[in-house]
């Protein structure tokens, strides 16, 4: 067939054509970066951005999976926080457990996610409320345990956050790998397909023999898992468990999901769009930092971008 190469890529990756808006915004940010700052357009800076975006990236993958099945996870930030404390506190006491505790922490997160899913299914309470509840429980428990950053990990563990392979940050590579795996899973596996079926029409999915409850449990467990991975990343970056570090992550994790073309309510979207969203947000804040623009103004700009992106999706959706 006579598809141009880029058209073919769009088909192949199943990108929503509306994502052109995100790519446009990315282009605007990159071009303005080159023009406005001489430090922005360097390989070194791009690699730094990739590294710094990892935490947000991990959190957003999990959020995206839950959103695709029609839910939302407001406990992601709290799971991030709890994971950092869980990991740093135990490793501080038993430094020999460093490597097993990476997996232990991921399991810890997945279990919390599993609980979110389980409560949602069994009670029928909206996941917004369930996850808000677990978030409050986790945050409260953490603050009972400590008000200060606490615990510690061996110095070498910062390699995960700061280490480079061929000059590419390890954390960034892991993030890209996670996006790739989740994309493959959602696109090429039976259970992945079921994510979209359950999110799009739970009743039709059930009557088609899809075991919706398992899919929902899987989505929330994955969300907890990735939130814990973000926690592991932050421990690697800061070397400690921090009782406040996850606070901004919950809402931040929703932004790339929305910019990436997923719809709250589920059934639609592509995690590669979410990756573009993560990169857009990270590059933007990087650029604005170079321009010495305050965080508060950055929030304003982010808000404008969200609204622009979503109005384009809504508009396109109507026209199609």
């Amino acid at each position: 067939m006579a598809y141009s190469k880029s058209r073919y890529l769009v088909r192949r990756l199943q990108l929503d054509p509306s994502l052109i808006i995100v790519i446009l915004l990315l282009a605007i940010v990159v071009i303005s970066g080159f023009v406005l700052s001489d430090r922005f357009g360097t390989t070194r800076n791009f690699m730094n951005v990739l590294e710094q975006s990892s935490g947000l990236g991990f959190a957003s993958i999990g959020q995206a999976m839950v959103v695709i099945v029609g839910g939302i996870d407001l406990s992601i930030g709290a799971v991030v926080t709890a994971s950092t404390i869980f990991m740093a506190a135990i490793v501080d006491l038993h430094p020999g457990l460093m490597i097993p505790m990476i997996f232990g922490t991921l399991l810890f997160g997945a279990m919390i996610g599993f609980c979110n899913g389980y409560i949602t299914i069994k009670t029928g309470v909206h996941p917004l409320i369930v996850t808000l509840g677990t978030a409050s429980i986790l945050n409260g428990s953490v603050l009972i345990y400590t008000l200060q950053p606490t615990g510690g990990v061996p110095y070498w563990f910062e390699e995960f956050a700061y280490g480079r392979i061929w000059n590419v940050p390890i954390s960034g590579l892991v993030m890209l790998l996670c996006f790739a795996l989740v994309w493959l899973f959602l696109r090429y596996f039976q259970a992945g397909r079921a994510f979209y079926a359950v999110g799009g029409n739970p009743e039709a999915a059930r009557l088609s023999g899809i075991q919706s409850n398992r899919i929902i449990l899987l989505a929330y467990s994955a969300s907890g898992f990735f939130a814990a991975l973000a926690g592991v990343y932050f421990v690697s970056r800061t070397g400690v468990g921090d009782p406040r570090i996850g606070d901004p992550i919950t809402l931040a994790s929703i932004t790339p999901v929305i910019i990436g073309g997923l719809i709250l309510g589920g059934g639609k979207g592509n995690v590669l769009g979410v990756l573009l969203g993560v990169i857009l947000i990270s590059l933007l804040s990087n650029l604005l930092n170079y321009m010495n623009i305050s965080t508060f103004i950055q929030w304003v700009i982010q808000g404008v971008i969200i609204i622009i992106a979503v109005s384009v999706y809504v508009h396109k959706g109507k026209k199609l």
């Binding site: 979209y196 799009g200 029409n201 009743e203 039709a204 059934g267």
Partner: peptide
């Protein structure tokens, strides 16, 4: 409500 998954394609 109970049959089609409107957001998925025909083959799915």
């Amino acid at each position: 409500e109970e049959g089609l998954m409107m957001l998925l394609d025909t083959s799915a």
